[in-house]
Design a protein around this nucleic acid. Structure first.
Length: 274
DNA sequence: CAGGTCGGCAC
DNA sequence: GTGCCGACCTG
C-alpha cells in the first residue's frame, strides 16, 4: 500500500507528516506519527523535532500528533495571568493584549509609597519610568512565532505588509516585522517612521533607534493607502456579517445560559493603521 | 546495515 | 493513557 504523506502547514514550508497505524502485536491499532524535513530526514518524536528546529521555532504550542498549533496548549505553558487564576474569567477567551515581554525590570528603581498615619504622605510617581521602560535590544524578536487562531484553532492567515516595508536587524523575518510594527502602533502614540539612520544596517546593535520598530524607513504611497482602505472595507463587511449571524444565533438560544465571546472581531482594530 | 515496526518504560 | 525511544525484524 502506498504511504500518504501530506504537508504540515504549522511547520516551515516543505515539511511533511505521515501517520502509520500498527497492524499487529499487542499495540495493534495504535498509530505513530512521523515528520519529514524538506531534506527528507525522518522525525519520530517532538523532542527530536525540537532539537532539530527548536532554535528557529517555538514548538511549545505545537501538537505533534495532529501537526497543528493548539490554542489550548498556549495557556498551559505560558505563565497564567492573575485574573485567569482567579476564576473570574472562566471559559472566556484570553483577550489580554499586553505584549509577551517583560513589563518590569526589578533591578531598576521603582516608585514606592510608604503607608503611615501621616495624611500628608504623597504617592511618589516617577514620570521617567513610564517613558523609560527598559527593554532589550531587538525585543521584538520575542514576538516571532506568535499567531492568531480562529475558533476552530486553525491558524489565521497573517496580514500582508506593503512591499516597501523592510525589517532591520538580525533574523528579522516578515512575521516579526509585522508584529513589531503592530506593537509599535499599540504601545506608542508617536509616529512610526522606521529606522531613519542608514548606519543601522551596518551595525544595528549600535545605531538602532529604540523608540522605533525594527523596520527600515519607508514611504507610504497612494497605492498603499488605497489598498488598505479596501482591506478595511472588506474586513468591516465580514465583521458585520459575522456579528449579524451571531446575533441571529443568539435570538434562537435566547433562553439559554451565558454565551462565550465570539472571536470574530479580534484583530480588526489593527486594520485602520499603516 | 538501514529503515520500518512494535514493545514497553516513564510520565 | 500515551509519548518517546530502544531494539527487534526484515530486506
Amino acid at each position: 500500500m502506498e504511504k500518504k504523506r501530506w504537508d504540515c502547514t504549522a511547520l516551515p514550508k516543505g515539511w511533511k507528516m505521515e501517520e502509520v497505524t500498527r497492524k499487529s502485536g499487542l499495540s495493534a491499532g495504535k498509530s505513530d506519527v512521523y515528520y519529514f524535513s524538506p531534506s527528507g530526514k525522518k522525525f519520530r518524536s517532538k523532542p527530536q523535532l525540537a532539537r532539530y528546529l527548536g532554535n528557529q521555532m517555538d514548538l511549545s504550542s505545537f501538537d505533534f500528533r495532529t501537526g497543528k498549533m493548539l490554542m489550548s496548549k498556549l495557556n498551559k505553558n505560558r505563565q497564567r495571568l492573575r485574573y485567569d487564576n482567579n476564576n473570574q474569567n472562566k471559559g472566556k477567551p484570553d483577550l489580554n493584549t499586553s505584549l509577551p515581554v517583560r513589563q518590569t525590570a526589578s533591578i531598576f528603581k521603582q516608585p514606592v509609597t510608604k503607608v503611615t498615619n501621616h495624611p500628608n504622605n504623597k504617592v511618589k510617581t516617577d514620570p521617567q519610568k513610564a517613558i523609560d521602560q527598559p527593554r532589550q535590544l531587538f525585543w521584538e524578536k520575542k514576538l516571532s512565532g506568535l499567531n492568531a487562531y480562529d475558533i476552530a484553532e486553525e491558524l489565521v492567515k497573517t496580514m500582508e505588509l506593503p512591499k516597501g516595508l523592510q525589517g532591520v536587524g538580525p533574523g528579522c523575518t516578515d512575521k516579526t516585522l509585522l508584529s513589531a510594527i503592530a506593537s509599535a502602533l499599540h504601545t506608542s502614540a508617536a509616529p512610526i517612521t522606521g529606522q531613519l539612520s542608514a548606519a543601522v544596517e551596518k551595525n544595528p546593535g549600535v545605531w538602532l533607534n529604540t523608540t522605533q520598530p525594527l523596520c527600515k524607513a519607508f514611504i507610504v504611497t497612494d497605492e498603499d493607502i488605497r489598498k488598505q482602505e479596501e482591506l478595511v472595507y472588506s474586513v468591516r463587511k465580514r465583521l458585520e456579517e459575522a456579528l449579524m449571524a451571531d446575533m441571529l444565533a443568539h435570538v434562537e438560544e435566547a433562553a439559554n445560559e451565558g454565551d462565550a465571546l465570539k472571536d470574530e472581531g479580534n484583530g480588526s482594530e489593527d486594520m485602520d493603521s499603516v
